[in-house]
Design a protein around this nucleic acid. Structure first.
Length: 424
DNA sequence: TCTGGGGTCCTAGGACCC
DNA sequence: TCTGGGGTCCTAGGACCC
């Protein structure tokens, strides 16, 4: 029995499952959820997957398929999904000792301390509890390493396992499954590495772990070596159980329609900079600098495609929206070129430090204490009265550039005016 | 015509220092 | 006049993840 043991809880077709909770008409029929701006499919129900709809496929390419099979098409409703995610994660954390929230719909559990318990049964119970309490179906993979837990989860989802839990508890069983597991489906192997591996005649996870050590070290970097060790059952990737502050914060959106005027781009960047600063203050950080970037559509000829970015260093680290907003607008003006049809702008805050450890700049013009109080008040008001209760004038009011979702579901769990009404 | 919005880690190469 | 080599730090870019 290996000394390490991990479980991966993964919500099935998460966004679609969230939509189905409040709209049962969506059950047992193909459903897809589109990305922001209704660009491409980012979640598919099993029925939609069976029709061959690939992850990330642009919506316009499947228009005929949608009509032919009467597929339900929804715009994404991230506020709703975030809410469901919190519910699912809190149940996992109540039930298990050490949990890492890995993404909006996945969590790793360290089962190392539970050897004396029936961990398989615990996971079966957890699957039932999550579905009963939230309506979201989940699957769980259990294995000695995180990478193998990913594989086990894959099996739990796809092989008609009623309990939706798959447990790797012997080396022979692992080897047998890895022999049929495509190398592309291994956690950490993307498109580029797949291409290289296929070129070397490596098709399955079993082929990969059979690779001689010298070849592995010669042809790949340390990340791949770690992946191989994990597949061999040697745990190299630990649980990250405390919430680590982000090292950079990006806010960016595609426009609802192409934008040509600097004024509109500046409104957008002001909106995104404000949001980014809120997130920054939310984790108690200040930033030392940031990037502003801009680009047209990516698919076009060289005279219609333009992309550029600029780094702006702050005179002293800050989380004051006013400072960052002002500099971001200037930065944007520097990289703006007239005559292009822009698709997107964005801001990436970086070079973080903790606010309380901030060295005070003797020559700073901002009154630090005043700035902190003002920003704190701003955040409080927006928290209490809703996100956009108080905003900066630079962000504009008309926002003709904003995206317009075509078919977003209601704010079932977070908006008083959109709650479901029960009929007596 | 129409193709998301976030993040992380690693590496190679240049700058700089002694 | 001759002009080394190793270490560290930073950055851009590439790969991956969901």
């Amino acid at each position: 029995m290996p000394s390490t043991m991990y479980a991966l809880v993964d919500c099935n077709n998460f966004y679609v499952s969230c939509e189905r909770v409040f709209d049962p008409k969506l059950c047992n029929r193909p459903v897809i959820v589109l990305s922001n701006n209704d660009g491409c499919a980012v979640a598919r129900s099993n029925e939609a997957k069976q029709l061959g709809i690939a992850m990330g496929i642009p919506a316009f390419q499947i228009r005929d398929l949608i009509r032919k099979h009467n597929i339900a098409v929804l715009s994404s409703n991230f506020a709703l999904y975030g809410d469901f995610s919190n519910r699912v994660m809190s149940i996992i954390m109540q039930s298990m000792p050490e949990v890492e929230i890995y993404s909006i719909d996945e969590a790793f559990i360290d089962l190392g301390s539970l050897h004396s318990f029936d961990i398989y049964q615990m996971c079966v119970d957890l699957v039932r509890k999550i579905e009963t309490c939230t309506g979201i179906p989940v699957s769980i993979g259990i294995a000695p390493t995180k990478t193998l837990a990913k594989v086990a989860n894959h099996i739990a989802k796809r092989h008609g396992i009623v309990e939706r839990v798959y447990y790797f508890n012997s080396a022979q069983q692992i080897m047998q499954k890895l022999a049929n597991f495509k190398v592309r489906d291994v956690w950490g192997i993307g498109r580029q590495l797949e291409k290289k591996l296929l070129g070397m005649g490596i098709y399955t996870a079993a082929d990969l772990i059979a690779l001689p050590d010298t070849t592995l070290k010669h042809a790949f970097n340390i990340v791949m070596q770690r992946t191989v060790m994990e597949l061999q059952g040697i745990a190299c990737i630990e649980l990250q159980d405390d919430m680590i502050n982000k090292k950079q914060i990006m806010v960016s959106r595609s426009f609802g329609k192409r934008v040509t005027e600097l004024v509109d781009l500046q409104e957008a960047i002001a909106t995104y900079a404000s949001r980014a600063c809120e997130k920054l203050r939310g984790q108690g950080s200040v930033c030392g600098g940031f990037f502003v970037f801009i680009h047209t559509g990516l698919h076009g000829s060289s005279d219609t495609v333009y992309h550029n970015s600029i780094y702006i260093k702050l005179p002293s680290p800050s989380a004051d929206t006013r400072t960052i907003l002002h500099l971001a607008k200037h930065g944007l003006a520097k990289i703006f070129r007239p005559g292009y049809r822009y698709q997107k702008v964005g801001i990436i805050l970086s070079d973080f430090a903790q606010a309380e450890q901030l060295q005070i700049d003797l020559f700073a013009h901002d009154n630090l204490e005043h700035s902190e109080t003002l920003m704190h008040t701003l955040d409080e008001i927006n928290y209490k009265l809703g996100k956009h209760a108080l905003q900066f004038g630079a962000a504009g009011l008309n926002n003709s550039w904003k995206m317009q979702p075509g078919n977003r579901s209601r704010g079932y769990t977070y908006c008083w005016d959109e709650l479901l009404v029960a009929k007596l």
